[in-house]
Design a protein around this nucleic acid. Sequence first.
DNA 1: AAACGAATAT
DNA 2: GATATTCGTT
Length: 307
Amino acid sequence: MREEDSNWFSRWEEELPSPEELMPLSQSLITPDLALAFDIRNPNHAQHQQPPPPPPSSALQPPSQPSLSEFAADSGDLGSGAAGDEHARTLKRPRLVWTPQLHKRFVDAVAHLGIKNAVPKTIMQLMSVDGLTRENVASHLQKYRLYLKRMQDLSGGSGGGANGGSGGAGLGASTDPATDHLFASSPVPPHFPHPGLANSEHFLPFVPVPALQHHHHHQQQQMAAAAVGHPHLQSQYHRPQQMGLYGSSPNSQFEHPFLGRHTQQPMHRMGGTPGHNQAPSSYVEDLESANGNGGRKVLTLFPTGDD
DNA sequence: AAACGAATAT
DNA sequence: GATATTCGTT
């Protein structure tokens, strides 16, 4: 029961990248204004995401959440000289780029929450990515649902050989809920705030990539990493609750097809940047290498019929 | 009023 | 095509 909690927590500390790692050479690329801009959130309401101090367990302390601004690929000036500081709240954030890592976070959250609770707000909280907004998640969730739906239709539909081996995305979309092994590779916060529960214990420093890329060519990124990407894990963290027999479990609802692996090609061309990307190297991550070789091909995720 | 979700716009 | 934003509903 609470065992897992301790486990995932422990593991987490391990995989927590050092602040230095999280803060590569990008910070200097961003203007202070920008950073501030990212930090701001809805003027309407404050949904503080800043995780409170961790329990007095030990001297361990998760690094603060890096804001959505690790990588500023921007070349010009976002805030433009005009920036002041007051504009901060009126500034628009750049389009969020859902990197495989970020997406993983997302999928993990959804998988662990179960369809039932997998709503933008909850997901957002679970992900605990500073700067991530509910809208961001909602938008992504919409797409993700379509993706799931599509897959579901294909697998369940009598359409014949739907999937086939489209690339590496060998989906095993089984219509059978029995297959619902809901375990993602990522530990998820144990309990979840039921509406009314004042809680706030979810820390998880993640480093998304703020799309600092504005006008001008944009690279497209495909929704890749999907649900559980591993056939077998050392599932240390097993699902706390096994779907019951009546399905009245709080979470864990059948869902999420299993996707396959995918690769994401490097995006930023850090010209001459020695050092590698931040690589928390947690457990299973299909990261790409920072190398720039064309060895990898991007799998078009959703098999849209044909490739 | 706040949040979800689908539709629509960039 | 990927995200953002709008809009109707709960």
